[in-house]
Amino acid sequence: MSIDITGVTKRFGDFVALDDVNVSIPTGQLTALLGPSGGGKSTLLRIIAGLDSADTGSIRIEGTDATSLPPQKRNVGFVFQHYAVFKHMSVAKNVAFGLEIRKRPKHEVTQRVEELLGLVHLSQFAHRMPNQLSGGQRQRMALARALAVEPTVLLLDEPFGALDAKVRKELRDWLRRLHDEVHVTTVFVTHDQEEALEVADEIVVINEGRVEQIGSPEQLYDEPANDFVMSFLGEVTTLDGRIVRPHDIEVELAPVPGAVEGTVTRVLRVGFEVKLTVATAGGDVTVAMTRTHLRGLGADEGSRVWLYAAKGAVTVAGTAVKETAVAG
């Protein structure tokens, strides 16, 4: 294991940011710390980097106890949400910073900087100042700067959080490809489940200072440990006291044994998809299906329907924490 976090607790005043967290992060993989804002994931990342210190617990990086090491001795690369570019230095100087601190020979620094700028596609911007770059370019520069010192682990704190949707998507794909090339153990923090599911090899779900589940994207999606993980990873609705995904509900116009009876109160068409709101004795249920499916079914507002979870569907006991978003 590359990073071992044991029994880490962190408080800010009365607020418990992390509560006895234990996580092991595998070597060479891309791991996402996923969770809602304020859930403690950024704090955990900063504790790994040494930018914050844990109240209790220990951090081991590649087998070395790093708990009381200052950040500059941990050999980690850190990429900040707001880039933290050195505003008074050119792009090349920014990337060279860590190498110059380590007093590497000049020609080696020049060569390495060129190599890294090539890697992040910023070669032609080497002599620009950071304020002449776009947000996406700045973040790529920050990434090159962090990679320059050949860190044991690369830590990214909401790296794409400050960028607009399109650039975010591009950089996300690019990070995945970059990681396949560089293979450095990488941990990134995100509150965007889509980003985590798409990019990460492994996801650690953190909420209210606690680890809810650790696993591959498939494991998390298919075998959610609890209602929180299930609802955080995608839309859910509550059917007969169990949480289920809206597209995993089957709808029939005739009674089916074990099915829940209800009335369609609303039909909302969004692109290829249709969302039905069905009033049942246990409350409103949201059902998602394709337009074609609905047409074949022949249901409309006011229809009496019978609902049941599809065969093989993942369900978890409980009620949906998050109201299923219905576009209005």
């Binding site: 800010f12 005043g13 304020g38 950024s42 704090t43 900063r46 704190d157 909401e158």
Partner: peptide, 8 residues
């Protein structure tokens, strides 16, 4: 320190 929202 009290009002801080980590990571935001």
């Amino acid at each position: 320190p009290k009002g801080r929202r980590p990571g935001r």
